[in-house]
Design a binder for these strands. Sequence first.
DNA 1: CTGTTAGCGCTTTCAG
DNA 2: CTGAAAGCGCTAACAG
Lengths: 344, 344
Amino acid sequence: MADVARLAGVSVTTVSHVINGTRPASQRTRDSVLAAIERTGYRPNTIARALARGGTQSLGLAISGLSNPYFTDVVAAIEAAAGRAGHTLLLGDTREDPEHELRIVRALAERQVDGMLLAPTVGALEHALPYLESQGVPTVLLDRFVDVPLDQVGCDNEQPTARLVEHLIDKGHTRIAMAIGIPGLSTTDERVRGYRGALERGGLAFDPGLVAEGHSQRDAARDAMHTLLELPDPPTAVVSGNNFMTIGLLRAIAERGLTVPDDLALVAFDDFEWADLFAPRLTVIRQPTTELGSRAVELLLSRLADPDRPPRTERLEAMFVHRNSCGCTGPSPALQLRAQPSKA
Amino acid sequence: MADVARLAGVSVTTVSHVINGTRPASQRTRDSVLAAIERTGYRPNTIARALARGGTQSLGLAISGLSNPYFTDVVAAIEAAAGRAGHTLLLGDTREDPEHELRIVRALAERQVDGMLLAPTVGALEHALPYLESQGVPTVLLDRFVDVPLDQVGCDNEQPTARLVEHLIDKGHTRIAMAIGIPGLSTTDERVRGYRGALERGGLAFDPGLVAEGHSQRDAARDAMHTLLELPDPPTAVVSGNNFMTIGLLRAIAERGLTVPDDLALVAFDDFEWADLFAPRLTVIRQPTTELGSRAVELLLSRLADPDRPPRTERLEAMFVHRNSCGCTGPSPALQLRAQPSKA
DNA sequence: CTGTTAGCGCTTTCAG
DNA sequence: CTGAAAGCGCTAACAG
C-alpha cells in the first residue's frame, strides 16, 4: 500500500480512502491511485483491515456431518447468502461431539468471525454456548432448538412426523416402528413426540419395543432394524427419523430379503434428490433446506446490525411428499416427473 | 492481552511466549499467566497474530457445486485433513464460472490464506490461475488437471471409463451412448477419450449422434437422453459421465416408461452412497474421494513447507463397482451387503 | 529467565 | 480536497 501511495504520489491515507470510497477525492488523484494499484498488482490485506476496523466480514459455521446431504444443501445456501452480503464462511465440523464442538467454535471465534452459525450438539448448553455467551459472539442456532435466548431457526418436526404416522395408521397399520435420532436433540425429541401423539390419537398404544435407537446413523439404524425384524411380532411399518437412518433401514430390510412396501411400509423424514428413483419411491418429509440456510444468515446479519433486538425463533414448514414406499400406488414416475419440468 | 499481563504482573512478551510455548519461562510465571488468562476470559486474536506473523493458518478452498455429493465427500476430507494440521478452511463456490471463480479466489487470497485448493473451471487458465500466479499464492489443483506447473491431484478417468464401455461391449452392445460433462474440463475429455478408445478397440465406430451433451448437469442430461431415445435407432446402453447426469438419465428413462437394464443398460462414473438401493443397483466407477481430499491437503502442506520443490502431479485410481444396471445379475443385495459388515 | 520496543498493513481521527 | 500520526492485538528481535 505504501508502494501504491508512492507510485501515485499521494499519502497512504488517500489510497485507503479511494479504495474504500470513504471520502471524496479529486478525479485526478483517484485515477492515479487506481493506476498505481493496477501497476503494482496490489492486493488489499483483509487481515490488516480487520485488525484496524475490528471486523472481519466473515461468519463461522459449525455444523455436524458436512457429508450429510441435508446439511450440504444448508451449507450451500448459507455460503450463497453470506457471499451475497460480502461475507466469507469459515467452516468447522462439530462431529456431533460437545467437546469437539467447543474446540471448533473457539477456533472460529479466535479467528474473529463477526458472527456464528451453529447447529448445536446435545452438549452445547454445557460447552459451546456458555463460551459464545461469555465471549459475546453474536450467534444464531440452526436446525436444532435449545432453550436459550438466542436467535434460532429450524423446521417444524412434530406435526410432519405425526402426518407420516397418521398416514400409516390410515392404511391400517397397527405395529408402527420408528428409528429415532440422537436423544436430547430437539429434532429427535420433537419427531418422537409427533410419533407418539399420532399413535395416541389413532388409538394405538406406544410400544417402546418398537423404537429403534438409530442415533441418526446409518449403521446403528440398520442394526436396530435387524433386531426389530427378529421380533416375534415384528412391525408392519417403520418411520425413519432422518436420511442416514433411512439408508440403514433399507439395507436391513434388503438384507432380510424383504421388500418395501409389500412386506413393510416405510416413510421417512428427509428427502433425497433421487428419492423417486429408489425402489420403491420414498414417501418422505422434505425440509426447506435452502430457506433454512438463508434465513439463518438473514437472522445473523440482522443481529449484527442491531445487537439489542430481542431474540427471534423461527420455525419453517416442512413438506409431505407422497410417493410409494408407504404402500400407496401413486402416480407413475413418468407422470409425476413431467409435472415438474426441468429448469433448463 | 495487556490485561492478562497486568494481572499476572509480567510483560506482554512473557504472556505471548507462555501462550505459544515459544521460549522457556519459570513455572511460577507460567502458572500466574495461565491463571490470569483464565480469570480474564482472554481469547487470543488470531487476526492480530496473523498480521504479526505473516501467516494465517488457513487454507482456501474454491470448488464448484458444494452440493455435489462427490465434492461433499472431498470437502469433508479436506476439512478433516486441514483441521488435523491446525488449519481452518475458507470456502468458496466457483459456480463453474471463470469470472466468479476469479472473484472467489481473489476474496480468499485477500483474506491471506496460506494456500489455495482449487478445482479449476474451464476458464481458470485465463483468469484465476494467472491471478494466483502473479500473487504468488501456493496452489494445488484438485479433480481437474490443467497444463500448468502446479501441484495437481485427481483421479484416473480414461481407463475406468474404458472399462465401463468394454463391459458393455462384452455384453454385446453395439449402440452405446455417452452423456458427457462440461467440454474442456480434463475430466470430461479424459472420460470421452476412454469411451472412444474402448469403442475403437471393440471394433465399434464412434458415432457423434450417440453423444449426449449433458454439461455435467442433471436436467441437461435428461433432455439429451430424451433426444437420444427418440432416435430411429436408439442406443441400447448408455454411460453416464458423472453423478448428476446419472440422475437425469434415469429420470428420462423412467419418463419414457423404460426400464434399466431390460430396455437399456446404464453404467456410470461416480458412486452414490445408496447406489445399491436404486432400482436397479448401479454399476459405477467409484472415485477415492476421501483420499483425493487428504492428498490435496498433504500436497499443499508440503508445498508450504518447501516452496521450491518441483510441482507434482498425482493420479489416484478409481474402482469398478459391479452391480446390476449393466444387465448383469450380480450377487443379491443381501449377500453383497453382508460381505461388508458395518463398522458399528 | 524476563522486558522494551519496533513493526505487521491498514483505518481513522485530527489538522491543515 | 489531502496528510501525519496514532493505534488495532500480537510477535520477535534485541537487550538485559
